[in-house]
Computed example of a mutant assay.
Amino acid sequence: MTRWAPEKSDTLAALATEILHNYSRGRVLVAVDGPDRVAASGFADDVAAAVEGADHVAGRSTADGLGDDAFRSQVAAPFRAADGDALLVVDHALTGRTGLSGAWNYAVWVVGDFVADRSPEERGRANAVIDASDPEHPRRLFDDAC
């Protein structure tokens, strides 16, 4: 059976469209994480570029190496205090960070080559789950527990 393999640009455009449909105004924080930290970081770069490609201001940051309080004071608070509509995509933002759960407007869980539990707590908090095991053909997974 042939595996569905959408083009990377199509997956990213659809995700950017969804995020901007819901959060086009204000200062928006988007979390990106997953068991494969390299895949998640690269996908976060791609999401930010896709949002910019949709004519919206986007930036990139990381929560790696920052505790929850440091992230709030050094990254989230200054970003939210600035003027204008903008979206900040933050990698390494979910794993082990239950204290930041309320900080995110939108969260993406990226599954790369790393084979992991299909239902970790962080994945369950994500709005979108992306299978990036084929980096040129990432695809959205709809595997919620409804």
Rank of each mutant, 00 (worst) to 15 (best):
W104K: 14
D55M: 09
L66H: 07
V108C: 05
D46Y: 04
A44V: 05
H21N: 13
N105V: 04
V30R: 00
G53I: 12
S133I: 07
F43C: 02
T98P: 04
R25G: 08
H137C: 10
P120Y: 11
H137I: 13
D143I: 13
S73F: 04
V89C: 01
T11M: 03
A16K: 06
S133W: 07
V115Y: 09
R118N: 12
A63R: 03
C146F: 12
N22M: 14
G99N: 03
T98E: 12
D83E: 12
A82G: 14
G59L: 15
L66A: 09
S61F: 07
V47R: 00
D46V: 08
G99C: 02
T95S: 11
G112M: 06
A48H: 08
A58M: 13
D85Q: 08
S101E: 08
A58P: 12
S9T: 01
V38R: 02
A107R: 15
A31R: 08
A50F: 06
F79E: 07
P6F: 01
T95K: 12
V89G: 01
G99F: 06
R60E: 06
F79R: 07
G26R: 05
G112C: 08
H21I: 03
A70M: 08
L66Q: 09
R72M: 04
F142T: 15
F142V: 15
D36E: 09
A145F: 03
S119T: 15
D33V: 08
K8F: 10
R140N: 05
T95V: 14
N105W: 08
R60Q: 14
T62W: 02
A107Y: 06
H56P: 05
V32F: 00
L87T: 07
R123V: 10
A103Y: 00
A5R: 14
D144C: 05
A58R: 15
F43A: 00
R80W: 01
A103Q: 07
G124V: 04
D85T: 04
S133L: 06
V115I: 13
D91G: 01
D113N: 05
L15V: 15
D69R: 13
L88F: 03
G59S: 15
Y106S: 09
R25Q: 15
A49G: 10
G67K: 00
S73V: 10
R37D: 01
V30N: 03
Y106N: 11
R118D: 15
F114G: 08
D144E: 12
D10R: 10
C146H: 11
H92E: 11
F43K: 00
A77Y: 02
S41V: 05
A145C: 04
N22S: 14
A116G: 09
P120A: 08
A132D: 13
V90E: 00
D36I: 02
P35H: 10
V89K: 01
L20A: 06
